[in-house]
């Protein structure tokens, strides 16, 4: 379970417009109260955070796709963690469930805090979000 502050945005970084749309709706329906901001590529997300302090970004969580053209999620992770030294920004990757095992461990080595498996079925998808993220620590 990753606890994310309620006062920041959730950045969804995915090249698929359809998948961004679905994920935004799923996040709306989840227990998370954060507003969503969409990025259609890792590059546009990096442009957004370039030259800024992490505390100024107003981001509570980054949900990042792995398979994206130009720059993959794997390539983007060290750009965020090492190049821009944003060690505390919460980043989770999104995987389709059956490619998961190796992708997840690779992403975690590159600095991802966690992952969610994309689901077929909105109920399942919402449950997946609620099982992995919360605005409040669970006591």
């Amino acid at each position: 379970m990753i606890v994310i502050p309620a006062d920041g945005q959730i950045a969804v970084v995915d090249d698929s417009k359809v998948e961004r749309m679905i994920l935004s709706r799923v996040l709306e329906m989840s227990n998370l109260v954060n507003p969503v901001i969409e990025f259609s590529s890792a590059v546009s997300f990096l442009n957004e955070i370039d030259g800024r302090e992490q505390s100024d970004l107003g981001l509570s969580l980054v949900l990042m796709d792995i398979n994206m053209p130009v720059m993959t999620g794997f390539e983007a992770l060290p750009q965020i963690r090492v190049e821009r030294q944003m060690e505390n920004l919460k980043i989770a990757i999104m995987v389709s469930s059956f490619e998961a095992r190796s992708d997840i461990s690779r992403a975690e080595e590159l600095g991802a805090d966690g992952y969610i498996a994309k689901q077929a079925g909105i109920d399942k998808f919402v449950a997946e979000i609620n099982a992995n993220f919360s605005n409040e620590p669970a006591y």
Binding site: S96, F98, G121, I122
Partner: peptide
């Protein structure tokens, strides 16, 4: 593998 994402999308969009 390649079909999985669009099929998942279809289910979710239908939902």
């Amino acid at each position: 593998h390649d079909l999985r994402a669009p099929v998942q999308n279809l289910v979710n969009l239908a939902d």
